[in-house]
């Protein structure tokens, strides 16, 4: 996936970018509207994350302009305001969704996925590996031609493993990626999801190996 992050705070942009890259996305960062326009003119993005308050103007102006052009890149607005009217304002101007700062990365990810699923008709990027085909945007998994229904957390767990096959993930890390912060979740909860995912992968050439006390790893064959 190719994202454009329009955000004037370098620190936040850096933090968000690094998380996105960790998830295997390509992300460009524009610190102001002028840069953002230049990026949009030169590159095709899958999604734009747009801050509203920018040093050289209002993000909503950019949004309006963007919608007036032929480009149909979906936009998620990052807003510091939480007033309903402001959110609605953004939506009226053509944003596909919004998220209030500060945000949970998991929620951002979920919203990106939801927007992409809504806006792009068919799969754009699929991962094919060991007998399975996975469309992370649509959240569709096919194992040897058979559709497999995944729950959201199973899906995200699979995504984590597929982005780094052969890498060992601790229970902690997986918990952090799967759960948001509004609940205390015991690390053992991850075992349930790993167990479910194993079942879904039974027919493929992939398997999740348990390393007692260390974590899990996706292995081929």
């Amino acid at each position: 996936m190719k994202f454009l992050l329009v955000e004037d705070s370098e620190a936040l942009a850096h933090a968000v970018s690094s998380r996105m890259r960790q998830d295997g996305h390509v992300i460009d960062h524009a610190a102001n509207l002028a840069d953002a326009r230049a990026f949009v003119a030169g590159t095709e993005y899958d999604l734009i994350l747009l801050d509203i308050m920018l040093p050289d103007g209002d993000g909503r102006a950019f949004l309006k302009q963007h919608r007036a052009s032929d480009l149909d890149t979906p936009v998620i607005v990052l807003t510091a305001r939480s007033q309903v009217s402001d959110r609605i304002d953004s939506l009226d101007l053509g944003a596909d969704d919004y998220i209030t700062k500060p945000f949970d990365h998991a929620e951002l990810e979920a919203r990106c996925r939801a927007v992409l699923r809504r806006t792009s008709g068919q799969a754009q990027t699929t991962i094919a590996m060991g007998g399975l085909v996975f469309d992370p945007v649509a959240g569709q998994l096919t194992v040897r031609g058979q559709d497999v229904a995944l729950r959201n957390r199973e899906l995200r767990l699979l995504e984590v493993f597929l982005n780094a096959p052969g890498q060992l993930f601790s229970k902690q890390k997986l918990t952090d990626r799967l759960f948001s912060f509004d609940h205390d979740v015991s690390e053992n909860a991850i075992e349930v999801y790993v167990g479910r995912l194993r079942k879904h992968l039974e027919q493929s050439d992939l398997k999740i190996t348990t390393f007692r006390g260390l974590g899990y790893r996706l292995d081929h064959g």
Binding site: V16, S18, L78, A80, R81, K101
Partner: peptide, 20 residues
């Protein structure tokens, strides 16, 4: 709006870093 932006953006940064 400006105040919210000024406060929430660093908070968002902190949060993102904390998550990382």
């Amino acid at each position: 709006a400006e105040a919210a932006h000024r406060v929430r953006t660093p908070l968002a940064t902190v949060r993102s870093y904390a998550e990382g």
